[in-house]
């Protein structure tokens, strides 16, 4: 099964190249990737600029990074980001995985409705979801109570509402990823386990879970990334005075452009690259074909 697609796609590649593949297409491709990467590269370069300007080069410095590290507010919001991401990812991964198993493995009344409920948080724009949650936390009386917690030596006060908001949009993403993995999984493997005297729990523990693990890890990684990156929902569900890193960056941008923002941005970019790297390595470990790398979702 795995031999034909690559043969076929190899043929496709050669064909497209030979028929229409010309110098102009290659030039175009290079320009396309330049368009994608140049702004990021420039952003990173000016985080080392020895001037307040982000457009005129005045020599190299790492002073902006020193300022960033010394900025207690920034560091605190970084810890806030990590805490929210870890907690919401853990909850969303469990809930999303269970939901995915129900949706993929059973047919039952109300499945269509449940499908809609699971897909809606992905489809609707985050601003709409953000104001929905804002109104809800106000009306329900849940409010924006903080969870006072000691986290790696930092006293954090993280509103429950933010964590809830992050779980709410992450459940769906985890469910989609795990479902895709489940759909590709051979069901007879579970039947084989049952046939070999494994009960429901043993079948899940010894066969389903190990086979599903790459999907669950992928879903968790996606949830973690989305949670770290989220600005809009955090912004509207945090009440007053709570900042994750993106919320703080947004506030800084509003007050004016400085290379310090570039420095924070570079830090966040590095974090994203690290997560992408982890994702690639874990996928290669799990022995999936290279094509799998392409799918963020």
């Amino acid at each position: 099964m795995s031999t034909t697609p690559s043969d076929r796609t190899l043929g496709m590649g050669a064909r497209l190249r030979s028929r229409l593949g010309s110098l102009s297409l290659s030039v175009y491709g290079v320009l396309g990737f330049l368009f994608l990467y140049l702004p990021i590269v420039i952003l990173v370069i000016f985080s080392f600029n020895d001037s307040r300007s982000t457009s005129q080069w005045a020599g190299f410095t790492t002073d902006w990074y020193r300022q960033m590290i010394e900025d207690r507010q920034i560091i605190l919001s970084l810890w806030n980001s990590l805490f929210v991401a870890i907690i919401s990812t853990a909850i969303a991964t469990v809930l999303g995985t269970l939901a995915a198993m129900a949706m993929e493995r059973y047919s039952f009344r109300g499945k269509m409705a449940m499908d809609a409920v699971l897909y809606l948080p992905i489809i609707i724009p985050d601003i709409a979801m953000a104001i929905m949650l804002l109104i809800f936390f106000n009306v329900s009386g849940i409010g924006f109570q903080p969870w006072e917690v000691q986290f790696f030596g930092n006293r954090l006060a993280v509103p429950y509402s933010v964590i809830i908001g992050h779980v709410a949009f992450n459940i769906s993403f985890v469910a989609v990823v795990v479902r895709a993995r489940l759909a590709n999984m051979d069901r007879t493997l579970e039947e084989a386990a049952q046939d070999l005297y494994a009960n429901t729990w043993q079948t899940f523990r010894r066969v389903t879970l190990p086979m599903l693990m790459p999907g669950i890890l992928g879903g968790a990684l996606l949830a973690f990334t989305l949670s770290l990156d989220d600005f809009v929902i955090t912004f509207f569900t945090s009440g007053a005075g709570f900042n994750t890193l993106p919320v703080r960056v947004f506030g800084m941008i509003r007050r004016g452009v400085t290379p310090k923002i570039n420095a924070v941005s570079t830090l966040m970019l590095a974090g994203s690259f690290l997560l992408i790297l982890i994702s690639i390595i874990s996928r290669m470990r799990s022995g999936e074909d290279e094509d799998a790398i392409q799918f963020g979702l």
Binding site: L36, F231, S272, F273
Partner: peptide
């Protein structure tokens, strides 16, 4: 992969760029 890497970086940061 090169195409998707920017997509998985923070949207806010990319807009700021």
């Amino acid at each position: 992969l090169a195409l998707m890497i920017p997509f998985w970086t923070n949207f806010l940061i990319r807009t700021y760029a």
